[in-house]
């Protein structure tokens, strides 16, 4: 009798779990849909470590046209404008350029506004508690990494409008490393006139893009021995960095949620110790391996970055 009770209990917890997963996923799907269909005007801040960055985020949908504007309000500024599937980046001191993609690469990982089912391979979706965020009832959805080499991403979603209210990178100990918090959001039936003006503007033509298979030039220069589960090479080339004109062999990896950049460069003069530097969730690990320097940049724990950097070798 007790055995049957146990089995039944297990069975029900299993069902409950299965239900949880679908609901968490469903919530994320709803959010992605809401973000693409509603007219809203929001402000949020991203707090990383000791710093804060305020942003403004406006979205409009008129007929078949989607318009989106995301701008960084502090410092010299950064403007990102999306008209349907073209995103234009306006940065100080460099000419604006466009990329043909259907989501802005801002502080929120783009995949969350898209098809999140691609994340299921490496992450679990878990429902968290309910609460009140930015004056609205919210539901926590946790995107938990399946192994310990990555951070988790938590989202607080408005239970009424399905819009995002808060998001955070959380480490395996449960500390919030980098938080994004909406300070204000207004959802309107009519699109904002500021965005409608954008329809009349002309933007630079999108840059051409190449997949790894088409490039295939520098992949054999170095062997990157270890990467966390699920990361795939998206791009590799040799180019000069914008700011200091240094030449670097560059590799871009992604697991769908997080991007990792690996740079292999000529070493700086002198014996520099290897070390990590982090701001919020972003880690920069610089590894001095004698004949060359390896730097790893991405929203990953410092230990993971260290392991990646130390695994880079010359091909035998």
């Amino acid at each position: 009798m007790r055995l049957i009770g146990c089995i039944l209990g297990l069975f029900f917890t299993f069902i409950a779990n299965a239900n949880d997963v679908t609901t968490a996923e469903q919530l994320l799907h709803n959010m992605a849909k809401a973000v693409h269909t509603r007219n809203f005007n929001a402000s949020f801040v991203v707090s990383k470590g000791k710093g804060m960055e305020p942003y403004r985020w406006i979205h409009a949908k008129q007929g078949d046209t989607e318009l989106e504007l995301l701008s960084l309000l502090n410092g010299a500024g950064l403007e990102m404008v999306r008209v349907n599937d073209r995103v234009t980046y306006f940065e100080p001191q460099s000419p604006p350029y466009s990329i043909s993609t259907d989501s802005i690469a801002g502080p929120i990982p783009e995949v969350l506004f898209k098809d999140i089912s691609s994340l299921l391979e490496n992450y679990d979706f878990v429902l968290g508690g309910k609460g009140r965020v930015a004056g609205r009832p919210s539901q926590l959805v946790r995107i938990e990494s399946k192994d310990e080499s990555k951070y988790n991403y938590w989202l607080w979603i408005d239970t009424q409008s399905s819009l995002l209210l808060k998001a955070a990178y959380v480490n395996q100990q449960g500390d919030l490393l980098e938080q994004l918090l909406l300070t204000h959001i207004s959802v309107t039936p009519e699109p904002s006139s500021q965005l409608l003006e954008l329809q009349q503007k002309e933007f630079p033509a999108p840059l051409p893009m190449q997949t790894v298979n088409e490039q295939g030039s520098t992949t054999s220069n170095w062997v990157i021995g270890w990467l966390p589960q699920g990361f795939k090479l998206l791009k590799s080339d040799r180019h000069k960095l914008d700011l200091n004109n240094e030449l670097a062999d560059y590799y871009l990896y992604s697991d769908g949620l997080v991007d990792i950049s690996v740079f292999v460069q000529r070493p700086l003069p002198g014996q520099r110790a290897s070390g990590a530097l982090s701001s919020g969730a972003t880690t920069v690990y610089v590894h001095n391996s004698g004949a060359f320097d390896v730097s790893v940049v991405g929203n990953i724990p410092a230990l993971t970055a260290k392991s990646i950097a130390e695994s880079v070798q010359r091909p035998l």
């Binding site: 990329i99 893009m209 998206l234 960095l241 914008d242 240094e246 992604s254 991007d259 950049s261 730097s295």
Partner: peptide
């Protein structure tokens, strides 16, 4: 420091194309 600044900026720029590349 300059190099690290350049790396962070480059990472930020490159990750903009990451999603569409993927």
């Amino acid at each position: 420091q300059q190099r690290i600044g350049a790396l962070v900026l480059e990472h930020q720029r490159q990750s903009r194309v990451a999603y569409s590349l993927q």
